[in-house]
Structures are given as C-alpha cells and as structure tokens.
C-alpha cells in the first residue's frame, strides 16, 4: 500500500496520519505516561535528560556535518569552523545566543564569498 495506492483524495491523508502522526505522537504519549511516574527531583531524571541531550546533540552534529541542499556544497571544515566560532562567541562574549548565531553566520558567509 503506497501513497498513491488508492486514487482518492482521502487516502494520502490517511497515509500521512498513520505513517506520520501516529508514528510520531505515540512516542510523545509514551513519554508522558512514563514521565508521569517520575518525580521531578529524582536521580533518574538526570539520566533521562542526559540521554535526551546527547540525542539532540546528535541532531545538531548531523545538521552541521551532513546538511542537505546548498549547504552540502560548502566544505565541511568551513561549517565546523563557523560552528566553533559561533560557540566561542557565545561562551566568551556574554553568553548571548543571538551573538553566537551572528558570529557563525559571518564566518560561513565570508567563507562562501571567498570561495573556500
């Protein structure tokens, strides 16, 4: 049963609801039911937060190292250098997220303009 298996207006929507909505929200609901039993000061929450943080960090690394679209044509070292500059600007100049983002943007655009 593919996306175009049944030639009606509603089948693609059913496909999206099952393969998209249910496949995603079931994890959120499961998380609620499990999180409901955990006290907010318990040690296990430190562990769960650690897992969630490592996971989000993997998403971040993926977006930087293996991006899609026009960004994929820039050299990976330029993107890593831009990310490090952004992070350094954030850490060393007053911890402003906007400043970190701006610094990364400047390094990336400069690199692209110079054709690095």
């Amino acid at each position: 049963m593919t996306f175009e298996a049944i030639d009606t207006w509603w089948w693609p929507l059913v496909f999206i609801l099952i393969a998209g909505w249910i496949a995603t929200d079931m994890w959120r609901w499961l998380g609620v039911l499990m999180g409901n039993r955990i006290d907010d000061s318990s040690e296990i929450l430190v562990y769960i937060r650690s897992v969630a943080t490592a996971l989000v960090a993997a998403v971040i690394a993926q977006l930087i190292v293996f991006p899609s679209g026009a960004l994929a044509e820039t050299p990976v070292l330029l993107r890593i250098a831009a990310a490090l500059s952004g992070f350094a600007a954030y850490i060393f100049i007053g911890r402003h997220v906007g400043l970190g983002v701006l610094a990364a943007l400047v390094v990336l655009s400069a690199g692209m303009a110079l054709g690095i």
């Binding site: 995603t24 994890w27 959120r28 499961l30 998380g31 609620v32 499990m34 999180g35 409901n36 955990i38 006290d39 907010d40 318990s42 929450l45 769960i48 937060r49 897992v51 969630a52 996971l55 989000v56």
Partner: peptide
C-alpha cells in the same frame, strides 16, 4: 521524542 517528553513532563 520519548526521552524528551519524559524529561519535560515532570
């Protein structure tokens, strides 16, 4: 989403 939800809900 599950560990993210477990971390946020409490």
């Amino acid at each position: 989403m599950m560990p993210m939800a477990i971390a946020l809900i409490p």
